[in-house]
Nucleic acid binder design. Structure first.
Lengths: 177, 177
DNA sequence: CTTATTCATGTTACATGATAACAAGTCAAA
DNA sequence: TTTGACTTGTTATCATGTAACATGAATAAG
């Protein structure tokens, strides 16, 4: 078994987190647990509650480093005894996004767990078009540059979306073997 | 009447086009005509046909520098005697996007005419959340940087989306007068 | 405690966005 | 003038997202 330094561990050490944790092999169990812990801390600090649906939703997102549609999440929730109507999933997902525990992917109309809930961030995303695997990249410099450039013409930037669609290492390898 | 150099004219002179044409006052009639001409050239070069629906769709998008939903476009088309079913609009819009004459805005599930159909480009967008007004920004450097960074971990970038949501000068002014 | 208030969860019903599959018309090249 | 590719239109359906309202749980105030 590979016991070398995992990407997830690296991430906790680095203030400016490692780019591609999701694509590198890592101890995913630990990865999941760490994010969940950070999430709890963060919510406690915000005075927000991690209720059963919300926690389960986050766990479902965390199981893979993948982007998931709201209805896919909903199916999982419904199968486990939670409500089976769209607002159930959308509300939980919206809550997670609001508190920086998940991201919304515009290109896919989908959601994914945030891998670095410790610090505020609005990363760029690498999305595999084949398997929906996801990685986060630090994007602060780009965002700032864009904000400044926009300001020159009087445009006030509020939110920036940076998403790259392509092939992750695994799928690229599988495509032409 | 203001006769000073319009932004639209500037754009045609600059290989790396001016950032914020849409927000600056300009002779929009000329702007529209120029884009339509360039579009025709481009399609001729590609051996593609600018049929009535397609041309009208482009004109509708061009009337404002705004992002429009497919159904908004469809209503306009239907009112003018074209088909009233969704595929009519989606096909025309898809055609325009394919040939670089329009852009699809992920954040809004909407479309907008490309203001610089002369050269191939995948710009960044500034989208006003109030009036849906739109501006294009050159984004090649960012795209390239992202592509390189991604390549380091074996991710092959194919398409990059960069969209900023905020307030255009006019709406920002109106908000707190 | 117990009541008032707020927040969470669930529902129904609907709005909006997008596509598959098929029929019929148009156009240009052979 | 007929073949074949492309275009336009249709019907039907799927996918995504939200508004509005009823009920239930947690918290705070009396």
């Amino acid at each position: 078994m590979i016991t070398s330094q995992t990407e997830c561990d690296k991430v906790t050490r680095l203030p400016d987190h490692e780019p591609h944790s999701a694509f590198a092999p890592h101890d995913h169990r630990a990865c999941e647990a760490r994010v969940l812990d950070q999430a709890r801390d963060r919510l406690a600090a915000n005075g927000a509650r991690l209720t059963p649906v919300r926690q389960r939703t986050l766990e479902i997102l965390l199981e893979s480093h993948r982007a998931m549609g709201a209805y896919e999440v909903l199916d999982r929730l419904a199968a486990e005894g939670f409500g089976r109507q769209p607002p159930v999933a959308y509300r939980a997902l919206e809550f997670l996004v609001e508190h920086g525990l998940a991201h919304r992917l515009q290109r896919l109309n989908a959601f994914a767990a945030c891998l670095h809930p410790g610090h505020d961030h609005a990363p760029a995303f690498l999305i595999c078009r084949d398997c929906d695997m996801l990685a986060e990249l630090p994007a602060a410099p780009v965002r700032d540059a864009l904000t400044d450039l926009a300001a020159e013409s009087g445009f006030q930037v509020e939110r920036v979306t940076i998403e790259a669609l392509g092939l992750c290492p695994a799928c690229a390898g599988a495509a032409r073997p």
